[in-house]
Design a protein around this nucleic acid. Structure first.
Lengths: 195, 195
DNA sequence: GACGTGGCTTGCACCGGGTGCAAGCCGCCC
DNA sequence: GGGCGGCTTGCACCCGGTGCAAGCCACGTC
């Protein structure tokens, strides 16, 4: 057997746990699966589960480390035109590559099958929002209202598109839906406070 | 003493628990206060606490029943112009009466003192979002994307304004801030799916 | 004014998510 | 080969949240 370097080992168990979590929850529903179940299915201990994921929801929605890297890169390369909202949309579009809908469909089906789950959808995109937030923050350090409006609105558009999208294809490709959602919303710099 | 009708009694303990919760959390922070503490401070039992509030956060952010009634009334009276986003803004503005900033300031101070708390802010406005959602739903039953964009964006604006507002008055009145937030965002009907 | 119904409270027992701690295992580097 | 340090695991614990069943008492009825 090849040398199981520590890093590779870690990535592997990370993915093992996430895969187990998604599979089990898809089968039985969120409430009917305990962390212990997931850990066992992934061949680790309950305690180890929490070494990798801070919460049960995180196991379902935390982004694959490689994807997180890609997101960071995206943020770094974001354009800086005069239209901040347009730039933000550019990043959002980059988050969802066309065609590659596999895990997205899985997660979306989770929400469809178990509606109680909808309240976690916000958390699902929170890591994107965090990235957007640092971007916006670096761009408008003096205008916190603008920063929060930009990131919050982008998050709303993401969630709206995600919830409206149907994994059976009846609503078309997710990327297109997200485009429509982003196109119908606008955030402009708020006028400065009364002086 | 006057007759303690059941309804009045109930409202009183509801308010007692919420007041105790806000006070204690403001003093010690969210994590350092247990449900048992709150119940004891309110002079009831732990179990009763959960008869009134489904979760610990709810005790802090659930709207006073009378306020909830007012919100419902507001939704019923909302205008129905051709501009749905404008109508929605009208409702949002009605939620926050000018001048009456007391409990708002209390809650805002909570977030200021304990930043870990920020993630619950969304939950804080969720009851508003729910009301907006039914309104939007009744208005655009055939366009779920539009419905979700409207309510999600409105919620984002509310949260952004709430987080940017400073209870010390340095950012002016909350209602004004909310106005600026709402004014700098727009949601238009998404173009229909490709056909 | 007595009485029974039913809502509200409460204690109890239980589940399960999340955490600190300390011991052990083993890849890695010197 | 040997020690350092990261990763795993079990254990004990805290606390949020829930079902249940018993008791209490306001309220409507006669």
């Amino acid at each position: 057997m090849s040398e199981p370097t520590r890093e590779a080992q870690r990535l592997q168990t990370w993915r093992g746990i996430q895969a187990a979590a998604i599979r089990l929850v898809a089968e039985r529903g969120f409430a009917a699966v305990t962390v212990e179940d997931v850990a066992a299915a992934a061949g680790t201990s309950r305690r180890t589960f929490f070494n990798y994921f801070p919460t049960k929801v995180a196991a379902l929605f935390d982004p694959d480390p490689e994807l997180a890297d890609r997101l960071q890169e995206l943020v770094d390369r974001a354009p800086r035109t005069g239209d901040a909202w347009a730039d933000l949309c550019w990043i959002c579009r980059g988050v969802v590559p066309r065609g590659d809908d596999e895990t997205l469909a899985l997660r979306r089906r989770l929400v469809g099958d178990f509606p109680e789950f909808t309240e976690y959808v916000g958390a699902a995109h929170r890591y994107v929002e965090r990235a957007l937030a640092t971007w916006a923050q670096s761009r408008f350090p003096a205008d916190p209202l603008h920063v929060r409006l930009l990131t919050g609105t982008a998050g709303a558009a993401l969630s709206a598109a995600f919830l409206t999208w149907q994994p059976d294809g009846s609503t078309g490709e997710f990327a297109d839906l997200l485009d429509r959602a982003l196109a119908s919303v606008r955030v402009d710099p708020p006028e400065p406070a009364q002086r």
